[in-house]
């Protein structure tokens, strides 16, 4: 118990750090799924965001520029997904899967060229943490929540904004109707295809930002496979968080907590078969879904292609 208490502040720190990329990606996925697009290609979009953010940040020395360009790259990749699924009505799962194979390959290819030309490019820069005076000193949670990078704070600020958008804006409501019943939405004068494309843009930008967080705020390097399944976890948090921004925040933090627990257990029980600790976040996700993932929640037309001609 003592060890656990001593480990707790660090677990919480890991929780918050680990939650940010998942939170960003799953907020993107909320937009996507609210517009009826299940985007399983988050993993690939995150990889692109991570690499482009890293490379541009290193080249220009401006990490925020890196983030912005990374998000643009994410949008570009996700528009490819959008074109296939919205305009061509291709299967969403397979298109996403193709993105998951294609995007990391492009990122790795870019990395080969970028670092191959100059080995000094291998290590990038990091955003500095900003401690909020006073709050950062609260025991246990202070260092975790109130000593983050600006990008981390921004990710959390996004949560109420997204929540408010879907709850109170006319546009947010029409956005939701696209995922619930696109045919009806179209008769109400909503441009379903445009909304779907907008969702792709937002999803691409946010998922890429989540990836860029990994290279700009977490560790100063890009490696092939740096996303480590976080895109898939984000898909789960969207279901677990019941397609709401607040729910997704809770789910991301909970996942972050279990990842932190995994690390703490590995740190303290060194002779144990640590692969069982590594299973914790994934096993927990399944258990959480068993309790909280209901088939009745979620946009009705989620995952279904929308043929405008078939009205």
């Amino acid at each position: 118990m003592d060890v656990f208490l001593m480990s707790l502040p660090t677990i919480l720190k890991t929780m918050v750090m680990g939650a940010v990329p998942i939170l960003l990606a799953s907020l993107g996925e909320v937009f996507s799924e609210r517009a009826g697009l299940v985007n399983i290609g988050l993993e690939g979009v995150m990889a692109i965001g991570a690499f482009v953010g890293f490379a541009i940040g290193k080249m220009t020395g401006n990490l925020w520029l890196g983030l912005v360009v990374g998000m643009l790259a994410g949008i570009a990749v996700n528009l490819l997904y959008g074109f296939c699924t919205v305009t061509l009505c291709a299967d969403q799962v397979v298109t996403g899967m193709a993105i998951n194979i294609l995007a990391p390959a492009i990122a790795l290819f870019g990395y080969n060229l970028f670092v191959g030309s100059n080995p000094a490019n291998a290590t990038g820069d990091q955003m500095a943490s900003l401690a909020i005076p006073g709050l950062a000193n609260i025991p246990f949670v202070g260092n975790a929540f109130f000593n983050q990078t600006l990008m981390g704070y921004l990710a959390f600020v996004l949560v109420p904004l997204v929540w408010y958008f879907f709850k109170n804006f006319r546009f947010g409501l029409s956005f939701r109707s696209v995922g619930e019943n696109p045919q009806a939405a179209e008769t109400l004068g909503i441009n379903v295809v445009r909304v779907k494309y907008l969702a792709c843009v937002l999803c691409g930008a946010l998922a890429a930002a989540g990836g860029a967080f990994l290279t700009l705020c977490y560790t100063p390097i890009y490696t092939d496979g740096i996303v480590m399944g976080r895109g898939f976890i984000a898909l789960a948090t969207v279901i677990f968080g019941r397609w709401s921004a607040v729910g997704v925040l809770g789910a991301s933090l909970l996942f972050g907590f279990f990842d932190g627990l995994n690390v703490a257990l590995q740190a303290q029980f060194q002779a144990a078969p640590v692969m069982f600790f590594k299973m914790i976040p994934y096993a927990f996700t399944i258990v959480a879904l068993l309790f909280f993932g209901s088939k009745h929640a979620g946009p009705k037309a989620n995952g279904k292609p929308y043929f405008r001609e078939m009205r």
Binding site: V93, L289, L290
Partner: peptide
């Protein structure tokens, strides 16, 4: 009613 895509990946 759990989405099998998520559970199978986990």
């Amino acid at each position: 009613g759990l989405n099998e895509m998520i559970t199978t990946i986990m």
